[in-house]
């Protein structure tokens, strides 16, 4: 096979990886602050994708525009989930929280199955078949747009945490739960906001993914796992790590798919996970805990 094919596949993998990275960023933000692992992450992602689909069919708007209302809805959902279900579990043992989210995931994925059916559904935009040419590189326009949107959202998120008062308050909560309470922060509300923000990331990522791929309820659990693999690879609690992990996993899967068979591509992501756990358990950009 000529080199150009590998280059093209790599580029496409990197672009998809950015969208994965945004999804994983949501997981990382939630974990970094609330210290709860959102086992329903992929299921929320498919929910966002279905939401985009429904809105698209009703309004005929571009999914990248629909991203805004979808993210808003997911924000509200995430906020309510944290405030209603997860906050009472904050001081429960880790496995107990995990089980709660497993239950939520189980309900979410199967409600989607009942409502939307098991078949794959997609969206066709007016740029679905466009492509960009850059020297030997040919890439799908939809992937470029989706990746661009992912970068914009990620940049906005970084800015939010760095420059706004609310973002700083949330980071304070993540650093020191008791300290944050002592200085009078309403930690539970901040937790709910954080879960909302993480969910909004997932919502935005879901809308973007709708541009480049189809949705079935069955990809929910697979996406949850993918998000975890990305976050662990990149480094837990590290926001740039999540994006980097997304890029790496996107690249690994794309190259694995073309070198072997596309249906086995996830095996390469797992292989990467195992390698990371072996040689750098804290993740590529993670800090080792003492």
């Amino acid at each position: 096979m000529p080199v150009e094919i590998y280059l093209n596949v790599a580029a496409s993998g990197l672009l998809t990886g950015l969208v994965y990275g945004l999804m994983a960023l949501g997981l990382s933000v939630i974990f970094g602050v609330v210290r709860v692992v959102n086992f329903a992450h992929g299921e929320m992602m498919t929910l966002a994708m279905f939401l985009t689909l429904v809105l698209f069919n009703a309004l005929k708007l571009d999914p990248l525009v629909l991203m805004v209302p979808v993210a808003a809805v997911m924000f509200v959902l995430g906020y309510l989930m944290q405030a209603g279900l997860i906050n009472p579990f904050i001081n429960r043992p880790e496995h107990s929280q995990f089980m709660l989210l497993v239950a939520i995931a189980l309900v979410l994925v199967n409600v989607q199955l009942i409502v939307f059916g098991p078949d794959a559904q997609g969206i066709r935009t007016r740029y679905s078949f466009d492509s960009f040419k850059l020297g030997p590189l040919v890439t799908d326009a939809s992937k470029v747009y989706a990746a661009g949107a992912a970068l914009v959202v990620a940049a906005a998120l970084f800015a939010f945490f760095r420059f706004t008062l609310l973002g700083k308050a949330i980071r304070a909560c993540a650093d020191n739960y008791d300290g944050a309470r002592v200085v009078g922060l309403n930690v539970k509300r901040l937790y709910a906001l954080t879960f909302g923000i993480g969910s909004a990331c997932v919502g935005a990522a879901g809308a973007m993914l709708m541009v480049v791929s189809d949705v079935t309820p069955a990809i929910g659990p697979a996406n949850t796992l993918l998000a975890f693999v990305i976050v662990i690879t990149g480094g837990l609690g590290s926001m740039p790590g999540a994006l980097l992990g997304g890029l790496l996993i996107g690249l690994t899967e794309a190259l694995g798919g073309v070198l072997f068979t596309p249906s086995a591509k996830s095996m390469f992501a797992f292989a990467l996970l195992v390698l990371v756990l072996l040689f750098r358990p804290q993740g590529i950009l993670g800090r080792r805990e003492t």
Partner: peptide, 17 residues
């Protein structure tokens, strides 16, 4: 399809809560 799993999910939710 899926109703059984929703039921499982709700059972699990109620028990852990």
């Amino acid at each position: 399809p899926g109703v059984k799993q929703v039921f499982y999910g709700i059972c699990l939710l109620l028990v852990v809560m």
